[in-house]
C-alpha cells in the first residue's frame, strides 16, 4: 500500500470500526403502564431514535420499546398527567442509535412530545398535540383538535385534520393534506405544500421556500400567502371563485384566469394585481411576494 493511501485507509477503518461498535450496542426492552385520564396529559422526551404514539379507547397509557443499554428510561406522574423521558443528559442528534418508543394513549389527551433527531409519528389521535424536534421528522394522523408542530430541519407531514394548525420550520418541508379550520404555517427556507386540503382560514409564509397550493378553496375562505423570494404557486380547481389580490415589489405574476396575464412588478407601479376567479365560491386570497414568482394556474 502506498503511503498516500495509508491515511485515508486508517481513517476509513476508524469510522467503520466505530460505526460497528455503535450499531452493535445492546438495546434493552422497556415497558410501562399507568392509569391516565381520558383528558389528562402526557409529556414525552426522547432525543434520538423514534417516538410513535397511537390513540386508543382506554384510560391508561402503555409504553413499550427498546432503549440503548447505557441509557435510562423512566416515567412518573399520576392519572392526571404522566411524563416519560429517556436519558436527557446526552446530546444525541443521530450519533447514537437512539430509543424506539411506542405509546398507546387515551385518544383525547393533551400530548406534548420533544425530540432532537428522533422521528415523531402520532396516529389515531383526537386531542391536543404539541411536537418539537430539531431534525426529526414529524407526522400526525387522525382528527386532532389543536396541533402545533415545530422543527428546525425536520420534515412536517400533516394528513390529520385539525381545528387549528400551527406548523413552523426553518429548513424542513411542510406538507398538509388534512382539513384545517385555521392554519398558520411558516418556514424560512423549507417548502410548503398544501394539497387538496380544506382550509377555512390560512396564513402561509416563507422567506425563500416555495409554497404550492393544489385544490379547491372553500366558500368564504380567507387565505394569505407571503414570501420574500420563494415561488408562490396556486393551482386552483375550476370551482374556485372569489378574488385574488397580489402585491409584489420585484417579482412577477403569471395568471391563467381571465385573460392570460404575465406582469412584472415594474408594470404594476406599486398597485395590487386583482384577479377574479370564475367559480361560484367567494374566497378571498391575498398574496404578498417581495421578489419571488407568483403563479396562478388552473388545475
Amino acid at each position: 500500500m502506498s503511503r498516500r493511501l495509508i491515511g485515508p485507509a486508517v481513517a476509513g477503518l476508524l469510522i467503520a470500526l466505530s460505526a460497528g461498535s455503535l450499531t452493535a450496542q445492546t438495546m434493552r426492552k422497556v415497558e410501562y403502564r399507568a392509569a391516565l385520564d381520558g383528558r389528562g396529559n402526557l409529556r414525552i422526551w426522547n432525543m434520538s431514535g423514534s417516538i410513535r404514539v397511537t390513540g386508543w379507547d382506554k384510560d391508561s397509557v402503555a409504553v413499550s420499546g427498546a432503549v440503548p443499554a447505557d441509557q435510562r428510561f423512566g416515567c412518573g406522574g399520576g392519572a392526571a398527567g404522566v411524563k416519560c423521558a429517556v436519558d436527557l443528559a446526552a446530546r444525541y442528534d443521530g450519533i447514537e442509535p437512539g430509543s424506539t418508543l411506542m405509546f398507546m394513549v387515551p385518544r383525547r389527551i393533551q400530548l406534548w412530545v420533544k425530540s432532537s433527531s428522533a422521528d415523531i409519528l402520532v396516529n389515531n389521535f383526537e386531542g391536543d398535540l404539541e411536537a418539537y424536534s430539531v431534525s426529526g421528522r414529524i407526522r400526525v394522523e387522525g382528527r386532532v383538535q389543536t396541533l402545533a408542530v415545530e422543527t428546525m430541519a425536520g420534515a412536517v407531514d400533516v394528513p390529520a385534520s385539525s381545528v387549528t394548525l400551527r406548523a413552523k420550520t426553518a429548513g424542513g418541508p411542510i406538507s398538509i393534506t388534512g382539513d384545517v379550520e385555521d392554519a398558520q404555517v411558516r418556514s424560512v427556507t423549507g417548502n410548503i405544500a398544501i394539497s387538496h386540503s380544506r382550509v377555512q382560514r390560512g396564513s402561509f409564509e416563507s422567506i425563500s421556500g416555495n409554497t404550492i397550493w393544489r385544490g379547491t378553496v372553500l366558500p368564504g375562505a380567507g387565505l394569505e400567502f407571503g414570501s420574500h423570494s420563494g415561488t408562490i404557486e396556486l393551482r386552483l380547481s375550476p370551482a374556485t371563485g372569489g378574488d385574488i389580490a397580489v402585491s409584489t415589489f420585484a417579482g412577477s405574476v403569471k395568471s391563467e384566469f381571465g385573460p392570460a396575464t404575465f406582469v412584472r412588478a415594474r408594470d404594476l407601479k406599486g398597485r395590487e394585481l386583482q384577479v377574479a376567479l370564475p367559480g361560484t365560491t367567494d374566497a378571498r386570497i391575498t398574496i404578498r411576494n417581495f421578489k419571488g414568482s407568483t403563479l396562478l394556474l388552473k388545475q
Partner: peptide, 13 residues
C-alpha cells in the same frame, strides 16, 4: 448541527 441550521437561516432572514 443546530447552530449551523440556525446561522444559515438567520443569514437568509
Amino acid at each position: 448541527q443546530t447552530i449551523a441550521i440556525l446561522e444559515r437561516n438567520l443569514f437568509i432572514i
